[in-house]
Each structure stands twice: as structure tokens, then as C-alpha cells.
């Protein structure tokens, strides 16, 4: 028996938004530690890793590990039937071929349940090596979304360059060049509005704008986002999900041919 009840159901709705543009289907791996999902996009350029800890749920029960293959388009349709205020419970029997989503209104006067067929997915998990990144940049998530949107107009690729002074995002294309420089915040009233840079060595890498824009679908999950970079390895874009977990996106760089 698997059962996970989330008081703040809107978080699951937001998680869905953060996944569905990149992934058509994915396996939700459930254990007593919580729910994890790891999947590559169709082109195998990026990897999404979601972690929702058991402690973050109001009620969590997982008698035996199970992997639920879900069509994210279908799951998204179902989650659209939940109100933002609803409490959401995900339920499945052991070895079941369906999963049930239960939505309760806050005052319990409306309860809906939706059963969805599970899929058999050929799972391919990748081992992500522990990396000490040369640069980590924390910035407001809305700012990052704005930068990705603005620079996408100029070209397919964006260069992210980080030095001690700040971080520069650049894109070049037929109409010209765009450069956005963000300095490390000197003094901030609110932690989540800060730009904070930790740097061991300067790094400059090129990434496809298309994927970065897809990652920013997670913006509503967190006020800030963390970018981690090292020379010639994938970028990590991490959004924390309140007290329950995180979604991380890994994006392979573009390298000089």
C-alpha cells in the first residue's frame, strides 16, 4: 500500500508544471524515504531530478518500494481538476496497474477521486557524480526566468560567465547581441531577493536557451534558484520546494566543435 497526503496540494500542481514541458512520461519511485523521479528529456540533453521527502507530507505510507510509470500529460489533466487550496492524496495498492488521486476541499465538503492507468516504462537511471562546483550563483527565480526569456530572442544559445564580480548572461544572433550583467548584492533586506555568488574559479559555458526556458516553468515553486557550474560539465539549476524537497535540472553544455 502506498499513500501520500499533501496538505498543500498546490505544490504538486506546480511540480507538474515544472516537469511536463520537458517530459512526456516518467517513473515516480516511491520508498519509505519519499518520492523520487529522474528522467531525461526526449533528446537526452537534459535530466530532471525531483525529490519529495516523506516528512514533507501530512501522511506518508509506503509498505514496499514501487515505481509508478505515469504519462505526465494525463497526470497534468487530472491535477488541473484540483483547486489550489485542495489537499491531495496519491494512493496505490502494491503491484497495482492504476494510481488514484484524491482531492479534498479544505472544509472537506467536496471530495473527488481520479484513477489513472500506470505505464510500464523502461527505466534508465543515470548516476550523477558528486561534484564540487567551481561557481554557484543564487538569484531570484523570477529574475532568472526574465533573463532566459529576454535573451532567447537573440539566439538559440546563451553564454553564462561567472566571475567574482558577478555573472553575465549573453546571447548573439541575427539581430545582434544581448548582455545582462548581475552584480553580487551588497546588502539585501530579503534573502530571496539576493544575488549571491560563490566562486572557486571563473567559469564560462554555453547552453541552449530552449532548455533553460523549460526549466523556468519551476519558477512558482521557489523565490530563488541556484545555478551550479564547473568547466565542461552540465549546469545544475535547482529550485527548492519549501520544506519538502527540490527539483534539479541538469543541462549538458554546448562545446566548441
Amino acid at each position: 500500500m502506498f499513500e501520500a497526503r499533501l496538505l498543500q496540494g498546490s505544490l504538486l500542481k506546480k511540480v507538474m508544471e515544472a516537469l511536463k514541458e520537458l517530459l512526456n512520461e516518467a517513473a515516480w519511485d516511491c520508498s519509505d524515504a519519499g518520492i523520487q523521479l529522474q528522467a531525461m528529456d526526449n533528446s537526452h540533453v537534459s535530466l530532471v531530478s525531483l525529490n519529495l521527502r516523506a516528512e514533507g507530507f501530512d501522511k506518508y505510507r509506503c509498505d514496499r518500494n514501487l515505481s509508478m510509470g505515469m504519462n505526465l500529460g494525463s497526470m497534468s489533466k487530472i491535477l488541473k481538476c484540483a483547486s489550489n487550496e485542495d489537499i491531495i492524496t496519491i494512493k496505490a495498492q502494491d503491484n497495482a496497474d492504476t494510481v488514484t488521486f484524491v482531492f479534498e476541499s479544505p472544509d472537506q465538503d467536496k471530495v473527488s477521486d481520479y484513477e489513472m492507468k500506470l505505464m510500464n516504462l523502461d527505466q534508465e537511471h543515470l548516476g550523477i557524480p558528486e561534484t564540487d562546483y567551481a561557481c554557484t550563483i543564487r538569484l531570484p527565480s523570477s529574475e532568472f526566468a526574465r533573463i532566459c526569456r529576454d535573451l532567447s530572442q537573440f539566439g538559440e544559445s546563451m553564454v553564462i560567465s561567472c566571475t567574482k564580480e558577478g555573472v553575465r548572461f549573453s546571447a548573439t544572433g541575427d539581430i545582434g547581441t544581448g548582455n545582462i550583467k548581475l552584480a553580487q548584492s551588497a546588502k539585501v533586506d530579503k534573502e530571496e531577493e539576493a544575488v549571491v555568488i560563490e566562486m572557486q574559479e571563473p567559469v564560462s559555458l554555453t547552453f541552449a536557451c530552449r532548455y533553460l526556458n523549460s526549466f523556468t516553468k519551476a519558477t512558482s515553486l521557489s523565490k530563488s534558484v541556484q545555478l551550479s557550474m564547473s568547466p565542461e560539465v552540465p549546469l545544475v539549476v535547482e529550485y527548492k520546494i519549501e520544506d519538502i524537497g527540490h527539483v534539479r535540472y541538469y543541462l549538458a553544455p554546448k562545446i566548441e566543435d
Binding site: L47, L126, S157, A208, P234, K254, D257
Partner: peptide, 14 residues
């Protein structure tokens, strides 16, 4: 000219 790398060239299959 830059070439898009695949994520599988950095992370190994388990």
C-alpha cells in the same frame, strides 16, 4: 561553432 553535448556523455547509466 558549438555542438550540443548529450547528458549521457557526462553521467553514466546505472
Amino acid at each position: 561553432k558549438t555542438k550540443q553535448k548529450s547528458i549521457t556523455s557526462f553521467f553514466t547509466r546505472k
